[in-house]
Design a protein around this nucleic acid. Structure first.
Lengths: 212, 212
DNA sequence: TAGGTTTTCGACTCATAGGCGATAACCTCG
DNA sequence: CGAGGTTATCGCCTATGAGTCGAAAACCTA
């Protein structure tokens, strides 16, 4: 589970009280039940940590199978990538905390590598899809969206260019409203929203394609 | 396993002799052994069908977990995408055949959907990576490479543009050799090869990025 | 109403992609 | 050996999308 918090990309982890990896931080999840779908299972285990209705996007990341990943048992793990919009502060249990992806604490198993794989997946999709909807609140100004993209991508982003690109692609649309920033004044910003709140991929990256 | 054969993208399938899905066509694979990596397992099962040293690229595609996918048992499947270069004609058992992905025969389980998911993954990566190396022979002319791309992508491709794009990206390089086409004459074509024969992703698709 | 602040717009440059005709370099056949 | 056919390649053009930057717009406070 990823969320942009305090201007940085953070991941939800819980601290293990028992061996193996006691004291290390671990991804939320658990054992797959018989006759259960992987996605059902993820949501079932997630419910013990957060309100799953706040998860705006969920997709399968991959399956890790190295036998050494677990010191005691032979156990595969299928990881999912989940995104929570900014502005939501889900209630989490005492052993569970958000951690900056850039400075992960010691992690259990291969969970550190899985988190980094999830970040790369997210970064790629931000460029060629509308996944941003799952990180952004329902409506937002361009400055706010720029900060979200910058946090997730890890580098500065120009608000001018971000708007042009996303509007041209039909990903963003103006709500018509305006919002003023704070006590310091400044021109009120236009308020935008994502046209769709389900994953859509930009087809423009199909290269070598003759314009039909 | 995909290969471009007779100018079309084809997938390797074997015909089931026993229930369930007797007479339907099935993906090569089998049950994961204890303490085995998924990739090791795939290669082990594949060895009974083809010479695995001819597989130029192998990557995990995803894990399918719907309980209804198997009529008798509860069974997950992790699928891999493998690519074999043109020109190789691996010896396969009697029950195993290549099938055009565009006209799949009746398939067992959800294997039809898995094949189509693999094709989409391949099509995407052809645009933003050098995966072509795994479909092309060691050296080739541009006309040959164009035909491979056209077969995999499903639409015509211009050789002029293909060369320009792949050379600019540093994916292709000329060997210096030339090759003449056949009895009908014509200017001899330049011979190319892929600069690298392992997967490399074009970074140009990271949009919103200021040129550092 | 002046000055500060933030947002937005427009003009420009740049890089990559795609189209098309011209030319190059081979063949075969008379 | 030259004419005509065939295939490959190159050069020039256009189109499109991305990135930069400065100017103007629209708010605030003093």
């Amino acid at each position: 589970m990823f969320q942009v918090r305090d201007g940085e990309l953070q991941a939800l982890l819980w601290e293990r009280a028992r061996a193996p990896f006691s004291g290390c931080w671990s991804l939320p999840g658990g054992v797959l039940g018989e006759g259960e779908t992987l996605e059902e299972s993820i949501l079932r285990h997630l419910e013990t940590k957060v309100d799953v209705s706040e998860v705006a996007h969920l997709e399968q990341l991959g399956t890790w199978s190295e036998p050494e990943r677990h010191p005691e048992r032979w156990e595969l793990a299928t990881a999912y990538l989940g995104l929570v919009p900014v502005g939501i502060d889900p209630h989490v249990p005492a052993d569970t905390r958000w951690h900056r992806v850039d400075e992960l604490p010691p992690t259990a198993f291969d969970h550190g590598a899985i988190v980094l794989a999830g970040r790369e997946r997210l970064r790629g999709k931000l460029s060629y899809s509308n996944v941003g909807f799952a990180l952004a609140p329902p409506t937002f100004t361009l400055a706010e969206l720029r900060d979200i993209y910058a946090a997730a991508l890890g580098y500065d982003v120009s608000a001018t260019n971000l708007k042009r690109v996303l509007v041209r692609r039909g990903v963003l649309e103006a709500t018509g409203g305006r919002r003023t920033h704070g006590p310091s004044g400044g021109r009120p910003a236009e308020v935008f929203r994502f046209r769709s709140r389900s994953l859509e991929v930009t087809d423009q990256f199909a290269v070598f394609r003759p314009p039909s």
